[in-house]
């Protein structure tokens, strides 16, 4: 992670792919995105993290030029989506939250028709399709109807489809939601490869491990606002302690025990089922608790993660 940071600061003028200033989207009285600022640099994997309803998908739609902003400024590759929507969309690959593959078509036909929507020639697309099917590990599914694919395959095909126009920016809205662990790992591997060849990734997720795995830099959003920004390591360093001690005293006792735990660790987070003790040394904190005569039902010492940052910033657990 420090390496990435050094690279960015060393480069005096990193190419900015996306710039948002005071970006706002309202639906009637409801403010979905509330004046956010961020920049995405070339070749970076940028994450938008937040609970459901935080405004992630709305932000993605505005970048993808399928939703017009209500206020603020937004430029994608120096172009304003309000004026150059179709042009910007030619730069982008879009992988929506819900698969919108064409169920009436076969796997290769999905790629062919999508490429044609961009005006690409079918002779060129034929070789491109071979390449993309190999990339998505779907070569043997070429002539299968899309509806017969598994969830993981559908998602890989949607990503392959998003790459038909050889985009500079690939937008992924919750790319692994609903996939089993194996399918997720295959997908992450594919996304890493894209990053290696220089594709800029913009990813929304509510999986903390995914954000830590994939993103160079991310923003945490809540209620339409950006709560924090940085690399996963920076965020953990700034908003959490080195280690976390998780103790359980039983659902009914956690609240009363929390009073006795005061003074142990840097900070406490009381969840319905457990208490989190943020500390530089988890084992030492546990010893203190035991020495004070408290006996948790279970205890666990672990390294701090983005989930802890998330809890602190949005003040809630991820319930989806």
């Amino acid at each position: 992670m420090p390496k990435t940071k050094a690279k960015v600061t060393d480069d005096s003028s990193p190419e900015l792919m996306i710039v948002a200033k005071g970006l706002t989207k309202t639906y009637g009285d409801f403010v979905a995105v509330d004046g956010i600022n961020f920049e995405v640099k070339k070749g970076e994997a940028f994450g938008l993290l937040g609970p459901n309803g935080a405004g992630k998908s709305t932000t993605m739609k505005m970048i993808a030029s399928t939703s017009q902003r209500s206020g603020g400024e937004l430029t994608i590759l120096g172009k304003d989506p309000n004026q150059h929507g179709p042009e910007i969309r030619a730069h982008l690959g879009v992988v929506p939250q819900q698969d919108n593959l064409d169920r009436e078509l076969k796997v290769w036909e999905n790629l062919m028709t999508y490429g044609r929507f961009f005006g690409l020639k079918s002779a060129w697309l034929k070789t491109k399709i071979d390449e993309l099917l190999e990339f998505a590990q779907l070569e043997d599914k070429r002539n299968v109807k899309t509806e017969e694919l598994s969830g993981g395959m559908k998602r890989r095909l949607t990503i392959a489809r998003g790459l038909v126009n050889e985009p500079e920016i690939l937008m992924l809205d919750e790319p692994t939601t609903g996939l089993d662990p194996q399918a997720r790992h295959i997908l992450w591997d594919r996304l890493f490869r894209l990053k290696e060849v220089g594709v800029t990734l913009v990813i929304t997720t509510h999986y903390m491990d995914e954000a830590e795995q994939l993103c160079d830099r991310l923003v945490v959003m809540d209620k339409g606002k950006i709560m924090a920004e940085g690399s996963p390591a920076e965020l953990i360093k700034t908003y959490s302690s080195k280690e976390v001690l998780e103790v359980r005293f039983g659902s009914d006792n956690n609240k009363t025990m929390a009073k006795q735990l005061k003074g142990i660790g840097d900070r406490l987070e009381i969840l319905p089922d457990r208490i989190l003790v943020y500390t530089e040394d988890g084992e030492a904190a546990l010893k203190k608790i035991l020495a004070a005569g408290m006996h948790p039902i279970t205890s666990l010492v672990r390294r701090s993660s983005l989930e802890d940052v998330f809890l602190r910033l949005t003040g809630r657990t991820l319930v989806d």
């Binding site: 042009e87 030619a90 961009f118 690409l120």
Partner: peptide, 29 residues
């Protein structure tokens, strides 16, 4: 494999050709 297209007939080049034409935001031809 190259995933970033810089060729003349890239999707971007095709889209940019319509720049400035009437109704470019509504119609790609």
């Amino acid at each position: 494999m190259s995933l970033i297209n810089t060729g003349v007939d890239s999707a971007i080049a095709i889209a940019e050709r319509r720049r400035g034409k009437l109704g470019a935001a509504l119609f790609a031809g």
